[in-house]
């Protein structure tokens, strides 16, 4: 029987060596790969999200936890079969056109990945066309838009308009965030969710799915 509690703890503490060692042991001992993910790694990452939201964890703690999670996932991945893990959705994430800031966006991507979403990271300064292309060609179900500056924030609205014009708006959930973004702005541009920080991004998406 694999020690899921220890596995969770290794992710929570961001202990890469311990997370990969326990994962490899569990695989060698015949534990189902899906169980390792669903009962060991993901619950650990959820605790990390919770702590980040409660200001007990900060960016560095989240980053090393995500690294431990990723390292362990890399070991499990080859053993997973189709349908082993229920995909929560595929998120195309990017900092909007004109904006070059990537720290917040990367953090949200890591949190969502840790929570079980598939991530298509489109990078920074992403045009509306690139988001549309991702929806059309990569099975994207969620668009996550980040803007750090008041001057680039309008690109969020433009991207949503472009999705509308392309007839794709109904196909995707749109979540937005970044320093100047507010709930009032979300309403104004017609996004589905607004997350004030990376921890609540996961919660906001799950809330919409429920």
């Amino acid at each position: 029987m694999a020690d899921f509690a220890a596995m969770q703890e290794a992710v929570i503490k961001g202990n890469l060596g311990e997370a990969t060692r326990l994962t490899q042991e569990a695989l060698d001992g015949g534990t189902a790969p899906a169980a390792i993910v669903n009962e060991g790694l993901i619950p650990g990452m959820l605790v990390v999200g919770e702590r980040f939201k409660n200001n007990e964890y900060y960016v560095p703690e989240v980053l090393i936890a995500a690294r431990a999670m990723k390292g362990a996932m890399a070991l499990v991945q080859p053993h997973l079969k189709e349908g082993d893990i229920e995909p929560l959705g595929t998120v195309a994430i990017g900092t909007v056109q004109g904006d070059l800031h990537d720290i917040g966006k990367n953090l949200v991507a890591m949190m969502l990945e840790g929570a079980g979403y598939k991530i298509v990271d489109l990078g920074v300064d992403v045009s509306p066309e690139k988001f549309i292309d991702a929806v059309q060609s990569q099975g994207v179900t969620v668009i996550a838009l980040s803007a750090l500056l008041t001057t680039t924030m309008p690109s969020i609205g433009k991207t949503i308009e472009a999705l509308n014009a392309a007839g794709l708006r109904e196909k995707v959930t749109v979540i937005i965030g970044g320093a100047p973004v507010t709930e009032a702005y979300r309403k104004e541009v017609g996004a589905d969710a607004y997350a004030p920080d990376a921890g609540s991004a996961v919660e906001a998406l799950k809330g919409l799915a429920a």
């Binding site: 961001g14 960016v59 980053l63 690294r67 720290i103």
Partner: peptide
């Protein structure tokens, strides 16, 4: 760059 966060550990 952002590597600083992990290197702190």
């Amino acid at each position: 760059g952002p590597d600083i966060f992990m290197q702190m550990f």
